[in-house]
Design a protein around this nucleic acid. Sequence first.
DNA 1: GTCTATAACGCGATAGAC
DNA 2: GTCTATCGCGTTATAGAC
Lengths: 180, 180
Amino acid sequence: MPRLNADTRAEIRAAALELFAQRGFVRTSLREIAEQLGITKAALYYHFSSKGELISELVAPLVEDLETFQKRAAEYSAGDDPRPLLETYFDLCHRHRMLFLGLVQDAGVAAELEALTTIIHKRTEVDAVLVGSTEPADLVRATVALGGLQDCVVIFPDEPAEVIKEAAVGAALRALILDR
Amino acid sequence: MPRLNADTRAEIRAAALELFAQRGFVRTSLREIAEQLGITKAALYYHFSSKGELISELVAPLVEDLETFQKRAAEYSAGDDPRPLLETYFDLCHRHRMLFLGLVQDAGVAAELEALTTIIHKRTEVDAVLVGSTEPADLVRATVALGGLQDCVVIFPDEPAEVIKEAAVGAALRALILDR
DNA sequence: GTCTATAACGCGATAGAC
DNA sequence: GTCTATCGCGTTATAGAC
C-alpha cells in the first residue's frame, strides 16, 4: 500500500544521512535505511537506482558549496585578510558535518578490533595535556595542531619528510600557542 | 606445494599493507592479497585466522608507538617547549603513514562516484590560493589551517558551533600566517 | 508507488585432499 | 603449506504482482 506521507524521496535522504553519519557509508545497508522508514529495500530502489546515487545526492550540496567557496577563494590575493575565508570554510564544514562524520565512521571500519577507538582516545588525552585544559575552546588548539600534523602525512606522502616536517611543526606550534 | 620463500607470513603483511594503503581496508579483499602473492585465499587463512587478525597485526606497532608517545606527553607541563613533542608526533605519523593512508582510502569508499576526489582536488586549489604558492613547504601551512578547521567539526560535533569556530579560526589563522 | 520474491554476486570463512 | 570446493551470509539489483 502507498504510504501516507508524500515525499518519500526526501524522507529516504534524511534517514540515510542520519544513519550514514552514525555508522558510516559502508556499514549502512539499504535494508537498514528502508527498515527505519518502514518500507522495503526494493521500495527504496524505486526512488534511487543505486546506493551510489543516494550517496551522490547527499554529497551534491557539499560539492556545490565547495565550488562556490572555491570561486570566492580564487579572488583572494596574498596580503588580503584570510580570516573571512577561514570563517566561511568553517561554516561550510559545519553545515555538512553529518557527511564528514560519515566519512570518519567509514575510516573506522577496520577498527572493529577497537584499535581506532584506542587511537582516538589516546589522541584526546594528549590533546588535553598539550593545552593543559579540557575546555573545548582550548582543546581546539591541540586538535588543529596535532590534526594538522597528521593530515600532512596523508596529503604529502611522497614529499621529503624533512621539508614537510619543518613547515608542519612550525604551523602546528603557532596554532597551539596563544600568547606571544 | 610449499613456496620457496620461507617467511610467507611477513610477505603477506607487506603485500596487505601496500594494498590497504592503496585501496583502503574495506575494499581490499583477502582474495586480492592472496593473488598478489600467487597463493589462494585459503592458504592465507593458514597464516592468519581472520582479516581482523591481519589488520590487528599491522596496526599493533602504531598503537604501541602511540602508547610510548602518550607516556612521554604525560610528563609535559604547561610552560614547557611543545616543539619536541610535536616533532615526535610528526615522526610517529610519518612512520605509520601507510596505515593512515589506508584509513583515508576507507573514508573515500562512498566516493566511487568520484565526489571525494573532486572535494580533495578543490581543497588543494584553495590551499594554493591561500598561501599564494604551490611549494610544498607553503602548502603545508594551508593544509594545517584548513585541515585543522575540518577536523574540528568531526571532533566536536556537539559543542556549540560559535565556541569551536572562534578558537578554530584563530588557530588556523596563526598556523597559516608566517610573518608577524 | 509500493510490495513480495528472488536472482546474482562477492565476501569471509571452513573442510578436507594432497 | 597450499590446494579445490563449498558454505552461509549480506549485499546490490531486478521482475512482476497489486
